[in-house]
Amino acid sequence: MVDITTELSGLKLDNPVIPASGTFGYGQEFSKIYDINILGSIAVKGTTKNARFGNEQPRIAECTSGMINSVGLQNPGIERVISEELPELQKIFHKPVIANISGFSVEEYVYCAEKINNVPNVGIIEINVSCPNVHGGGMAFGSDPQRVAEVTRAVKEVTRKPVYIKLTPNVTDIAEIAVSAENAGADGISLINTMLGMRIDIKTRRPVIANKMGGFSGPAIFPVALRMVYQVHKAVKIPVIGMGGISCAEDVIEMMMAGASAVQIGAANLVDPFICPKIIHDLPEVCERIGIHKLSGIIGTID
């Protein structure tokens, strides 16, 4: 018997497989096609203080082994997420979930974290720092170590739940940002969010997506994500959730060897809605084949 359990800040997971924020909604659609309780946890769609419609159409562009999305954080706002979406999810998913929060100012992150703090089925708060900072000249929070520390500290003050900072890969030194979050009190690091990308329709001579640029994800970004997880794991002592392009059990093991305590599956859910159960099913078999008896024993074992 292979032990595929893992742990995040005291939270025991049956397995390391967690659908990534924005690719699983609030679980309702997936619960109709498989038993979602087999999942390690679920990272729900990013929530902002106010409801957001998001960006204009088109929002999706295909790439070689990946996709670009510019959904633009469409969500019903924190109040409705707390009063409707999370309670509804609790009825069908009986484990702690990861609540993903976005904001355009420190106050907005704090506002949402404070509200989420009282939601019983939230096990971890994941702070997405990829949004532009409207008070800081529009540069993403996540590309400035000082701003990341500021958000981390402010959020930690209003919640008892573990706080994971979800980093954007669109920076020169990812380890520096991670260390800054750790020093400010973060309980863990999630990475990577999407990479900034673009496609042009050569017939119309216009960008494919209305917003011109968007978030690139899928198998094409896996090597970059793996490299960053490796660098961050080396630089911090807190747990790391690894994601970016994972699409099979082998990818999960590779990501964990690089330093991830658990993983998130994003775009893969969209092209194969049954990918998470498949990966969970395959994990013990693949572990066995390569002589792993305890999956968590391989975390960050690469020099």
């Binding site: 924005g22 659609e29 998001g54 999305n69 959904v71």
Partner: peptide
């Protein structure tokens, strides 16, 4: 619409 999932979870096709 340009779709990613086609079954209602990604909000890629929202209008």
């Amino acid at each position: 619409a340009r779709m990613a999932c086609g079954f209602g979870v990604c909000m890629g096709c929202s209008i």
